[in-house]
Amino acid sequence: MTMQIADSVSLSAPDARARAHAAAARNNLRTEPRAVRITIIALAMIFLTVFVVLPLVLVFAQAFSKGILAYLSALADPEALSAIKLTLIVAAISVGLNLVFGLVAAWAIAKFDFPGKTFLITLIDLPFSVSPVISGLVFVLLFGAQGYFGSWLRDHDIQILFAVPGIALATTFVTFPFVARALIPLMQEQGTQEEEAAVSLGASGLQTFFRVTLPNIRWGVLYGVLLCNARAMGEFGAVSVVSGHIRGETNTMPLLVEILYNEYQFVAAFAIASLLAMLALITLIAKTVLERHLDEGHDASDH
């Protein structure tokens, strides 16, 4: 009799413990212990501070280390002005080209079925998967003195490498996917029904594009252009290979930052860098605003 009681106790004790464990585990699924939560959040914050915020602050601290006058005169330097101008020109060219190509490619991929479509989608992503330095080298191989078109170009006195066209080409290549990538999923989701409706109502191809297709993707276009522009202005690797680093002529802002830094002109280097950092911040804010608009667009399409 006593044996039996002892048995039942020894059986029920682990049973109760298991139940308590299970209940605790259920609670743990919903809320981590306080200490764990604080530790994890703190780790994330410290990481972000050290790797993102601190460098950003340092850029501005260094730029203004000799006062605001030194900062301004560094930016007013002819070399700096020329780099800023070149960067703006190159960005304008490559964003313009990629806007057109990206729109056309996204339109073709999203609205039509044709053989080789998957291949085209893969091709669009190529610039993302290739190292920018390789991208630059490709253009050297094509247009350099020893390249495929080198002698022909020299005979016709056309300068591509070590000049604006080369830099613009390399930048365009590297930033090609941005607009197309932003638009393809958006256009695929929207389908072709509105276009069909427009055509059946008598609209021409151009009218359909400008009155129906484009307004529907306008936030997506802006989003793609924004990211494309940020990358175009910040591109270093590909541009470095094709630019030739001719002072006051073929140096873009990122290239000039490196050169100035290597010459121990820290204030000047960080002054230019601060402009690029500001571009990044503005891009970030604009991106957030645009993403909200894009979400609204998605909601509206949820009939």
Partner: peptide, 28 residues
């Protein structure tokens, strides 16, 4: 389709989402 002068009503309406009702009807 453009020349046929056929009115087509789609199953999921295919209204132009960025236009008002008035502009939708005025489109054609």
């Amino acid at each position: 389709a453009r020349e046929r002068h056929v009115g087509f009503v789609f199953q999921h309406y295919a209204l132009f989402r960025h236009m008002t009702v008035f502009e939708n009807v005025a489109f054609g």
